[in-house]
């Protein structure tokens, strides 16, 4: 009985502690190096994705990679500063539709799977990115 109580308390406090760390997701994504690898894999997936590869043809890949790394780093609670344009600015006039947006989400999920990022961390990252949908599509 006492053991159960102790285990339960350990579990509860563990959970509480985990939830209170703001850079939890950043760590689960593998910190700076993990996020760099993730974004590189995402960009390779995009380049192979007929649905959206054309949208990125004129992009400066180096810059795109750096800004995406910064953005995911900031969103996940990491020690970075985002220095890129707003989502509305960087996507204006590009005729991005729902299909394009979802294709990128699928490419990101594929990249996260290949990085063996947990389902819970994947869900949390997508939850942070999803609200940008309205600023990106049909502008």
């Amino acid at each position: 009985m006492r053991l159960t109580t102790i285990l339960l308390m350990a579990l509860l406090s563990g959970c509480a502690l985990q939830a209170s760390k703001p850079d939890d997701l950043y760590r689960e994504l593998g910190q700076e190096q993990g996020i760099k690898t993730l974004v590189t894999k995402l960009l390779y997936n995009i380049a192979d994705d007929q649905r959206i590869a054309d949208q990125f043809r004129d992009s400066n890949v180096e810059r795109l990679r750096d800004k995406l790394v910064e953005q995911i780093c900031v969103l996940s609670g990491g020690p970075c500063v985002y220095t890129g344009d707003t989502m509305a600015e960087s996507h204006a006039g590009k005729n991005i539709n729902d299909m394009h947006f979802n294709a990128l989400v699928e490419d990101l999920i594929a990249a996260m799977n290949s990085q063996q990022i947990s389902v819970s961390a994947q869900n949390r990252l997508i939850a942070l990115l999803a609200p940008m949908h309205g600023d990106i599509v049909y502008h």
Partner: peptide, 9 residues
């Protein structure tokens, strides 16, 4: 609800 409960959708 993305990550709505126990980090599951």
């Amino acid at each position: 609800f993305l990550a709505g409960f126990a980090d599951r959708n």
